[in-house]
């Protein structure tokens, strides 16, 4: 496929980069990325991936846009309150870049639907707000051998890691099992500073783009943590000996997907 003049102009700042070039831009246009959660993390990730010309972007979320989302979920606008988040996200992405095909899945991820959702995508972005979903996405990606970006944000803090099959620990290697319901703050009471989603969600988009281009070093084997109050990023090396992991280890005991119980205040649009 040759670029149109409009595409050459639109992607000129990419094409001029030696790490991207016309070849890399073509890879992005041919790539497919699934974003699970159209919220604080998913919003900036989706927008940067759409702007970058990722050819197919899937977005999964069951919620509608709530007024309290707009403090950080910049893909949605005031006029979108009450609209399905996936629809609002699709409209924004399509308005940004007509090269992008957006596929919407108006659903929460479950053990029933996740394998089907992820199977056609090159890379998955976890933009969910609860541990059951985070463990589910991890286990499904390990089982389906799909690379994905984990992230979490709360208050003035964020974290990020990238899983690539065969290239380092998975989320479960590090965190083992979801904490009991309500044991760890994940919910709307804890709060989150709006720009945190922008910082961490953009980093997720960056990892996805690097993976598609095949350039640089991914955050495999590391957990990146960001403390906005201290204005400090730390790249924490993760253990390499993970062969006893219950899902990605040498003798996995988790061979079927698990639907953990959600905390009561999860899924209400934190």
């Amino acid at each position: 496929m040759a670029f149109t003049n409009e595409q050459i102009e639109r992607y000129s700042r990419h094409i001029i980069l030696k790490e991207v070039g016309a070849k890399g831009q073509k890879k992005l246009l041919d790539a497919s990325i699934l974003i699970i959660g159209a919220g604080g993390l998913g919003a900036p990730a989706a927008m940067y991936l759409a702007a970058a010309g990722v050819g197919t972007i899937g977005i999964a979320d069951a919620d509608e846009v709530d007024l309290s989302n707009l403090q950080r979920q910049i893909i949605h606008a005031t006029k979108d309150v009450g609209k399905a988040k996936v629809l609002s996200a699709k409209e924004t992405m399509e308005a940004m870049n007509p090269d992008v095909t957006v596929k919407t899945y108006r659903t929460f991820v479950t053990s029933e639907n996740i394998m089907d959702l992820i199977k056609d995508y090159d890379f998955i972005i976890d933009g969910t707000d609860n541990f059951p979903a985070k463990f589910l996405i991890n286990d499904a990606c390990v089982m389906a051998k799909k690379p994905f970006s984990h992230a979490g944000i709360i208050r003035f803090q964020g974290q990020l890691m990238t899983y690539v099959p065969g290239k380092g620990p998975c989320y479960r290697c590090v965190f083992k099992n979801p904490p009991p319901k309500d044991a760890v703050p994940t919910c709307k009471q804890a709060g989150v500073i709006g720009a945190m989603g922008g910082v961490i969600g953009s980093l997720q988009a960056m990892e996805a783009v690097k993976y598609i281009l095949g350039v640089g070093q991914l955050l495999t084997g590391y957990l990146l943590t960001y403390d906005a109050l201290k204005m400090e990023f730390r790249k924490v090396k993760l253990p390499t000996k993970t062969d006893d992991c219950e899902v990605c280890g040498a003798n996995p005991t988790i061979t079927e997907l698990i639907d953990y119980e959600q905390a009561e205040c999860d899924g209400v649009g934190l």
Binding site: L41, N130, F131, G152, I153, P179
Partner: peptide, 26 residues
């Protein structure tokens, strides 16, 4: 191991990291 915090004694020069659950995102 999460069950062995009591019995794990630190040595001079050890490098310790705490990795926290961070669940938010939406």
């Amino acid at each position: 191991d999460s069950g062995s915090f009591e019995s794990t004694v630190l040595k001079d020069g050890d490098i310790v990291e705490f990795l926290y659950f961070m669940g938010g995102g939406q």
